[in-house]
């Protein structure tokens, strides 16, 4: 994991990343964490501290709900499920991202032609 993504950049997208995983099935804290590593082809790890804060926020805002799973060897897992509101939020965030990435690409790499 040589390259990093700045905290500011990732913070704006944490919610969308979590919603993307949950819209493909219910999952629990550590499961979502592993899924994120896998999705990045083992190139990026989102700290669990960030994730737990995000779960709490997403639940308060009604985008996800939580429920306790059955007892395993280690204890009960707390699972998360996306709500209808969460799905709508995800679709909107995806659109926003599609727009943002095009613009940012232009702004960061674009050359200025002064008509010379």
């Amino acid at each position: 994991m040589g390259n990093t993504i700045s905290t500011d950049l990732i913070r704006g997208n944490t919610d969308t990343i979590i919603l993307n995983i949950l819209r493909q099935g219910d999952n629990y804290g550590y499961g979502i964490y592993k899924e994120i590593i896998k999705l990045s082809d083992n190139q990026y790890e989102l700290k669990e501290a960030t994730l737990y804060t995000a779960y709490r926020r997403l639940e308060q805002e009604g985008y996800i709900i939580s429920y306790w799973g059955d007892e395993t060897q280690g204890g009960r897992r707390k699972y998360y499920r996306i709500t209808e509101l969460g799905n709508e939020r995800f679709e909107q965030n995806k659109k926003d991202w599609d727009f943002a990435k095009v613009i940012l690409e232009k702004l960061i790499k674009g050359g200025i032609n002064n008509g010379k």
């Binding site: 804290g29 550590y30 964490y33 669990e48 737990y52 395993t72 280690g74 204890g75 009960r76 707390k78």
Partner: peptide, 12 residues
């Protein structure tokens, strides 16, 4: 609840 959630996940 949070302590139980964290404990389970760290153990795993």
């Amino acid at each position: 609840d949070l302590k139980e959630e964290l404990t389970t996940n760290i153990k795993e």
